[in-house]
């Protein structure tokens, strides 16, 4: 089913934010909408968006490629994105990341065997005073977790595993 058929209300709301003659502006919110389904944007969704906005599929794909929060392939259900940039690194983020890798038995960039968590190292998330910290990107949103310890992170992961809940 096309994006417009599936989410008629949301598509309309998104388009209403921008002048009708500049509806291309809606490409980013529409991509987020498409990503809701499976945590990544498939080819059909890109075609849908291109059609809604009267732009080419290549132009839509170039947006997906440019911005780091859009994904074009399936990874873990949750992307755990740990900030290891300078201010966080000065407050122990690298040690935190190494211990997480050890506990999860994966390297940065890899996904746990059960397909639950993909561990990623990311750039500054504007939470430098609350390191170590990470965000969890799920299909339907992003959630911050700050002042974290490895123990609390492992607890959070087991909750995610049990509940299978969606991140808001």
């Amino acid at each position: 089913m096309s994006l417009e058929k599936k989410y008629p209300k949301e598509v309309k709301q998104i388009l209403a934010k921008y002048p009708p003659e500049h509806k291309r502006s809606a490409v980013m919110p529409l991509l987020y909408l498409a990503q809701r389904e499976e945590g990544y944007i498939n080819k059909t969704a890109m075609q849908d968006i291109a059609q809604i906005l009267d732009i080419t599929e290549t132009e839509v794909a170039s947006i997906v490629g440019f911005y780091t929060l859009y994904h074009d392939k399936k990874e873990g259900k949750y992307r755990m994105q740990v900030c290891t940039d300078l201010p966080c690194a000065l407050r122990g983020a690298e040690e935190f990341m190494n211990s997480l890798c050890g506990n999860l038995g994966i390297k940065v960039g890899e996904t746990t065997e059960d397909g639950l968590i993909t561990l990623e190292g990311v750039m500054c998330l504007a939470a430098c005073d609350k390191a170590p910290m990470f965000q969890i990107q799920g299909a339907d949103g992003i959630e911050y977790h700050e002042n974290m310890t490895v123990d609390r992170t492992m607890e959070l992961i087991s909750v995610l595993k049990r509940s299978g809940r969606e991140v808001k």
């Binding site: 502006s25 490409v27 987020y32 929060l69």
Partner: peptide
């Protein structure tokens, strides 16, 4: 309007491009 992870969009003309859907 939500960006999608790009430091450069804090530069004002890059931000305008992004807001235009580019």
């Amino acid at each position: 309007h939500l960006g999608a992870g790009a430091y450069i969009c804090g530069e004002e003309t890059a931000m305008l491009e992004s807001l235009e859907g580019k």
